[in-house]
C-alpha cells in the first residue's frame, strides 16, 4: 500500500507500477465525455482551461446529487474508454493521472509512456464508499452539464489500484492470466 499525493509530480508517476494499491490524498478534478470534449475544444482554440492540467489528476465520475449535509452523492468511476479519444490531447498538456475503470486504447497507453502519466482504477459499484473519501467538492466549470460538470474535489485516502503505469505495463492484461483455468 502506497500513500500518494495529488496532483502527481513526474517522480510520483514513475514510482507507481501496475498492481500497486494506493491511497490518494489531495486535489483531483472530475470530467466525463462532455467535459473532455469542451476541454479539447478549448485547447484547440487556445482559450482558458477550467483548471491547470500540469500534474493534474482527472477522475472519470458523474456523481449523484448530494443529500442535504452531504459533500457529494455516490461517486464511483465510470468507464474510461469513452474518454480515450480525448485523453492523449490532455496528457500532451500535462495531465499526469487518470482514475476510472476499464481498458484503454493502445493510443492512450502510448501517450502515457510519452508524457509520463498513470492510469488507476477505483472500484466500480462502490460509489457510496468512495463518496466518503471526498471531503470537498465544488463545481468549477461547465455547470450546465449537470452531473458531467467539472468539479474540483479534495480527497483523503481514496483507494485505487495502478492498472497501467507509465512504462506501459497493464494489469488488465497480466493479472487474469494468473487465475485462468
Amino acid at each position: 500500500m502506497k500513500n500518494i499525493t495529488a496532483p502527481f509530480d513526474k517522480e510520483t508517476v514513475r514510482s507507481l507500477h501496475a498492481g500497486d494499491t494506493v491511497r490518494i490524498t489531495g486535489t483531483i478534478y472530475t470530467a466525463r465525455d462532455a467535459a473532455h470534449k469542451r476541454i479539447c475544444e478549448a485547447i484547440a482554440a487556445g482559450t482558458p482551461l477550467p483548471f491547470d492540467l500540469a500534474g493534474a489528476v482527472i477522475y472519470y465520475v458523474g456523481p449523484t446529487p448530494p443529500r442535504p449535509g452531504q459533500v457529494i452523492g455516490a461517486a464511483g468511476p465510470t468507464t474510461s474508454g469513452r474518454m480515450d479519444a480525448y485523453a492523449p490531447t490532455l496528457m500532451a498538456e500535462g495531465l499526469s493521472g487518470m482514475i476510472g475503470k476499464g481498458e484503454r486504447l493502445p493510443s492512450v497507453i502510448e501517450a502515457m509512456k510519452a508524457h509520463t502519466a498513470v492510469y488507476l482504477a477505483a472500484t466500480g459499484g462502490a460509489g457510496a464508499l468512495l463518496s466518503h473519501c471526498i471531503k470537498q467538492s465544488e463545481v468549477i466549470a461547465y455547470e450546465d452539464l449537470g452531473t458531467e460538470a467539472v468539479r474540483r474535489l479534495y480527497v483523503e485516502d481514496f483507494p485505487a489500484t495502478v492498472v497501467i503505469d507509465c512504462y506501459g505495463e497493464n494489469l488488465y492484461r497480466t493479472a487474469p492470466e494468473k487465475y485462468r483455468r
Binding site: 456523481p63 443529500r67 452531504q70 452523492g73 455516490a74 466500480g124 459499484g125 462502490a126 460509489g127 457510496a128
Partner: peptide, 9 residues
Amino acid sequence: TATPICQDT
C-alpha cells in the same frame, strides 16, 4: 446513509 449503491442509478 440512503446513498445510492452506484452513481449510475
